[in-house]
Design a binder for these strands. Structure first.
Length: 425
RNA sequence: GCGGAGAUAGCUCAGCCUGGUAGGGCGCAGGAUUGCUAAUCCUGUGUUGGUAACAACUCGGGGGUUCGAAUCCCCCUCUCCGCGCCA
């Protein structure tokens, strides 16, 4: 959520940003907010005036009664005022609610380095790492490799839970856990605190951390409960300090969260629908930072660097893209995706996503920071980046490390975490 | 699930019985005074609107009673303690 004061005092900053996004609809919403807000402020002044009168009369009644005098004319006046206040108050409140709803729809202000473009085709490659592997045999898809080795059972999972779920078996389940342990150990060694968050959240904190459209398209709702399954551990980590003031001496707070992630993934189907690439449930290790506003761009690079190191250790070729205006979404001010090389699709594909949300998430959540007991408060910045989402990392490993005989070599760094196993066979 | 106790500003606690301007302490900020790692005193301390004066709002949330509700009544949420159940 943007600061209403920014919209009030510097509407052109917001307008220019929405023009960069080429978002006519949101531009119109912005103009509505500006006029609604002016309107609201006018009405607040009026109704406050009436309330001041009411409060004054109520006090006089008290004094009259204390003195044993008649207060009936005051009381009659009061009744009249009360009715007026009630109707005007209702209007003002409705207007305020409208503004709040609309302001949630206005996206974060973009960093100046975000490239302009309509969709992910216009993301800008800023770095590549590693050699793209070459193969002298016909490549199999990761789903075929896994099924042929008896390490995944998509068909039975579909029968039991529907498409988008799977049974990982044996060594592949072991690989999944090895990836989790690898990422967790790596991040803990960097000084990040491991968090196992709740896997469900209430609506109110959830509204603070995500795009409202996600309630429709992404999140699973628990029936008859005010609870949603988390789509990523980013969400419960971000909401952890909702409505709190964080002591600025404790910043930065660096977390590494681990959880399964649950997503409806409505409409998201492409090549290789079958398999692990796009699942309703997958495991993910996630990095999260709360920091002082002036430090967030430094930590944005740190988070990216952490993930790069992990993919380098796994020996997977990747590139980093600076995500463009059409693909960045509402919350982040800037976002890097790491895309790993997927040999069978013969292209890079997204495996991690590194966002600086600046104060946008924290403002919605009512998180502030300041000196302990002090008066001056700021809104901290929040950042997140995937460490490893195991489903996509497994796709990359199965396809990049596949051998002609259908076996898969285990990346060296994972072997100690799999009892020394060198080959999936 | 049952019973009890709670939720008041960054923290902590009073006020509730008996309705009439939201208080103390700690912390923090500013100031005064004395001058030496400090003490003492004064002022301020949440949100919103307003250039400001000032005003409105705020006692977990929502209703109700009342001229007037932190206070009385009803509903809900959450926390703590005990009991029950339980991996």
């Amino acid at each position: 959520m943007l600061d209403i004061k920014l919209i009030r005092e510097s509407p052109d900053i917001v307008r220019d940003d929405l023009r960069k996004r080429k978002d006519e609809e949101k531009l119109q919403i912005l103009e509505d907010i500006i006029s609604d807000d002016a309107n609201w402020r006018r009405r607040v002044i009026e109704v406050d005036e009436l309330k001041a009168q009411r409060n004054k009369i109520a006090q006089e009644v008290g004094q009259l009664k204390k003195a044993g005098e008649d207060a009936s004319s005051h009381i009659a006046q009061m009744q009249e005022l009360k009715a007026k206040i009630e109707s005007q108050d209702a209007e003002t409140l409705a207007l305020k609610e409208q503004i709040s709803k609309k302001i949630m729809l206005i996206p974060n202000i973009l960093h100046e380095s975000v490239p302009v473009g309509e969709d992910d085709q216009k993301n800008v490659e800023i770095k590549t790492w590693g050699e793209i592997p070459e193969f002298d045999f016909e490549l199999k898809s990761h789903a075929d490799i896994a099924e042929n080795l008896g390490l995944a059972d998509f068909d039975r999972a579909t029968r039991v839970a529907g498409a988008g779920f799977n049974y990982l078996k044996g060594d592949l389940a072991l690989l999944d856990m090895a990836l989790v342990n690898f990422a967790v150990n790596f991040m803990v060694n960097k000084g990040y605190t491991l968090i196992e968050p709740p896997y469900m959240m209430r609506r109110e904190p959830y509204e603070g951390v995500t795009d409202l459209g996600d309630f429709q398209d992404v999140m699973y709702k628990i029936e008859n409960e005010d609870l949603y399954l988390i789509a990523t551990s980013e969400h419960p980590m971000a909401a952890m300090f909702m409505n709190e003031i964080i002591d600025e001496d404790s910043l930065p707070i660096k977390f590494v969260g681990f959880s399964p992630c649950f997503r409806k993934e409505i409409g998201g189907h492409g090549v290789d629908t079958k398999g692990l690439f796009r699942m309703h449930q997958f495991n993910k290790v996630e990095q999260f930072i709360f920091c002082k506003p002036e430090d967030s761009w430094k930590y944005h690079e740190e988070l990216l660097h952490n993930t790069e190191e992990m993919f380098q250790a796994l020996g997977l070729a990747y590139r980093v893209v600076n995500v463009c205006t059409g693909d960045i979404g509402n919350i982040a001010a800037k976002k890097y995706d790491i895309e790993v090389w997927f040999p069978r699709q013969n292209k890079y594909g997204e495996v991690t996503s590194c966002s600086n949300c600046t104060d946008y998430q924290a403002r919605r959540l009512g998180i502030r920071c300041g000196k302990h007991g002090g008066k001056e408060k700021q809104i901290p910045h929040t950042l997140n980046n995937t460490a490893i989402a195991t489903s996509r990392a497994m796709v990359a490993i199965l396809e990049n490390y596949q051998n002609a005989d259908g076996t898969v070599t285990v990346p060296e760094v994972l072997r100690p975490l799999m009892g020394g196993k060198e080959l999936l066979e």
